[in-house]
């Protein structure tokens, strides 16, 4: 029987998982079969993906990638790895979207932001004290390398304008709008919808404060325009942005991106 063990093709005489482990003599604490961690025995079939992980042991570089993606649903991972996604704005939405997409295994990420990390960012954005003063593009790239070193991260430390938006994002079929300023949000959306009609946009609007999580939704507003948020709760004097609700919205955006990567256009 031909199966894949820790990312490599393997021909086995075993008909069950336990027989395979006996045959291989690989010590393992974690067993993952076709994206799901199991402890009981299981019949093997042709083409199965088996991952055997020993806790506390650093795997070789080529084994690491297969172990990291072992919990992804089979056939999903290949599409996700081929995908290219751009994130415009690396604040509370963008930094969290980038981390989620990195954990999901999106193969190529473009990170765009003009700003550096400062102390008031840390209440909701995915940065650490050690990042203070660093460009957000660089601080996030460092984190992603620690989360998944197999992801190709490109960065542009620049302010997005009507003039540069098309050339910045034209290579990316999916763009996340993650700005703070509502005028900047509208400029990016209008510019790309006008100049790059095939680009799919996933935006955030309305996630300040600590209102119910359940008012945050993903809505398909136009053929290629998705908006996540409650649509109305602006960040303003007396109503700041807080980690839980901003992160809920970021997760909505990241999940919509994942769905689009997999060819699902409904919200």
């Amino acid at each position: 029987m031909n199966i894949i063990v820790n990312g490599k093709p393997y021909t086995s005489n075993a008909s069950t998982l336990f027989e395979l482990k006996e045959e291989l003599q690989i010590p393992s604490d974690v067993t993952i079969l076709n994206g799901f961690q199991i402890s009981e025995n299981f019949d093997l079939k042709e083409g199965d993906l088996v991952t055997l992980i020993q806790k506390g042991k650093m795997p070789s570089q080529d084994e690491l990638e297969s172990m990291m993606c072992a919990r992804h649903t089979p056939n999903v991972h290949n599409k996700v790895k081929e995908a290219k996604v751009a994130i415009a704005g690396l604040g509370g939405l963008g930094s969290n979207i980038a981390v989620l997409l990195a954990r999901t295994g999106v193969g190529t990420l473009l990170l765009v932001d003009f700003d550096v990390v400062e102390p008031s960012n840390l209440n909701r954005q995915s940065y650490y004290i050690s990042h203070l003063g660093l460009p957000k593009t660089e601080a996030l790239k460092q984190q992603i390398q620690q989360i998944n070193p197999f992801i190709q991260v490109k960065t542009e430390q620049i302010r997005v304008t009507e003039e540069n938006a098309y050339s910045l994002f034209k290579e990316y079929p999916i763009v996340c709008e993650a700005f703070d300023n509502p005028v900047s949000k509208a400029v990016l959306v209008n510019t790309l919808l006008e100049q790059s009609p095939q680009t799919k946009l996933v935006c955030g609007s309305g996630m300040a404060g600590y209102g119910s999580s359940n008012t945050i939704q993903t809505v398909r507003k136009m053929k290629h325009l998705y908006v996540c948020g409650d649509g109305s709760t602006a960040a303003e004097v007396g109503n700041g942005l807080m980690a839980p609700r901003v992160t809920v919205c970021a997760a909505h955006q990241a999940n919509m991106v994942l769905r689009l990567i997999l060819g699902i256009e409904e919200v």
Partner: peptide, 26 residues
Amino acid sequence: IPKATYHQVTVTDDDTLEVVSFVGGG
């Protein structure tokens, strides 16, 4: 509808408009 043409476009009773508004925060 390109933003630069809002002052030129005519809307009639047969038209369907979708206006997406953005609020601040991110």
